[in-house]
Each structure stands twice: as structure tokens, then as C-alpha cells.
Amino acid sequence: MKDKREAEIIREILLGDVHAYGSLVRDYQRPVFNLMLRMTGDEDIAADLAQDAFVRAYEKLGSFNQRRRFFPWLYTLALNVARDWRRREGRDRHVFVEDAAVLVREQDRLDEPKAVNDRIDGAKAFEAVMDLDPKYREALILRFRHDFSMQEIAETLGIGISAAKMRLSRGLDLVRRQFDGGVHD
């Protein structure tokens, strides 16, 4: 199990094995880099910010609650690094998603009575997600791209669980309306 392996790696790092951290970096370098790329739109800046996030995570690893999953903690930290950069640069907090089709999980397709995904056109899905307010977009990305639980989404975004559920529900409703051609039920 990945979580058990991660717990062992983290324990080794905390006991002084600095080289063990490399395996966590390898496991999560792509999603952290992709987050930074969505936030900056520049590969060089994204690489620098990803490195900063991993350095910060290493420095704060002692504060990590080992009863929780590591990736949501790392993602939260990386998101804060990106937000800090955006504030310093005077940019808005716009989050991009590289492929909106990944926002839909197979189990959600099975649970959806009207099977919205039967009508999904990749380009239309991308546009619908990109048109969302960033607070809804972030919630959708965390849930459907990174499979975060509601608790993890709430913690990552610094909101309550009910607010996380509301953002996810509202974001999905807005995307569904786009697929229905803007028709309101």
C-alpha cells in the first residue's frame, strides 16, 4: 500500500535519512510541477516553484501529521507556494487545468443518472471548467483530478467541509449547465 510505504519513508527521513526524501519527490514531482505550471503558465518558473515547494515540505516535514495522507498535505503546501508567488507578482489566482476530461471519474459516470458524460466533448468540457470561478475550479481539480476527500479539499482550500461540498456541487452544476447549452432545469 502506497500510504504505508510513504509512512515508512517519512519515518526514515525524520530519523535523518535525507536521501529517502528523493523517492517522495519522484512520486509527486509531476503533479506539483503541473500545479505550478497551471498557476504560472511558465515552465521555468513552475520548475523553480515546484523545487521551492519540495524544499518547504522537507523543512516542515516534522509538522506533518503521519495519520493523514502525504499528498494532500504536500499539495496544500505547494498551492500556498504558488499563491504566494502570484501575490508577489500581482497576478490573479486563476488555476488552469490541462485536461478537463480527467475531472470525471468512472465511478461518477456510473452514479450519474442522466449520464452527463455520455455527451462530453473534450473541448467543451475544457471550456466549461476554464469558465468557472477559480474557487469552484480548484475544488473540482482536487476532487476529480487528485481524488481528494471532502475533508482534504476543505483543509487544502482552508474552508469547512460544508463549504467544500458546496463548491464541488456548485462547480458540477455550472459545468452541467454548460453541457445542457445553458438551459436551466
Rank of each mutant, 00 (worst) to 15 (best):
L79A: 15
N80V: 02
V81S: 05
V81R: 10
R83S: 10
R83V: 14
D84Q: 15
W85T: 11
R86K: 14
R87P: 00
R87N: 11
R88D: 14
R88I: 04
G90W: 10
R91W: 12
R91T: 05
R91E: 13
V95R: 10
F96Y: 12
V97M: 05
D99Y: 06
D99W: 05
A100N: 07
A101T: 15
V102T: 14
L103F: 06
V104G: 00
R105G: 04
R105C: 07
E106P: 08
E106R: 05
D108K: 02
D108H: 13
R109P: 00
R109I: 09
D111C: 00
D111A: 15
D111P: 00
E112H: 06
E112S: 12
E112F: 01
P113I: 10
P113C: 04
K114F: 07
A115H: 08
A115E: 06
V116C: 00
V116I: 11
I120V: 13
D121Y: 02
G122A: 11
A123G: 10
K124N: 01
K124W: 00
E127N: 03
E127F: 01
E127I: 03
A128K: 03
V129I: 12
M130I: 05
M130A: 14
M130N: 09
D131N: 15
D131V: 01
D131W: 04
D133K: 13
K135W: 01
Y136D: 07
Y136G: 04
R137C: 13
I141S: 04
R143I: 01
D147P: 01
F148C: 05
S149Y: 01
M150Q: 11
I153L: 13
A154G: 07
E155G: 12
E155A: 15
E155V: 13
T156F: 06
T156W: 02
L157Q: 06
G158E: 09
I159G: 02
I159H: 10
G160L: 08
G160P: 06
I161E: 13
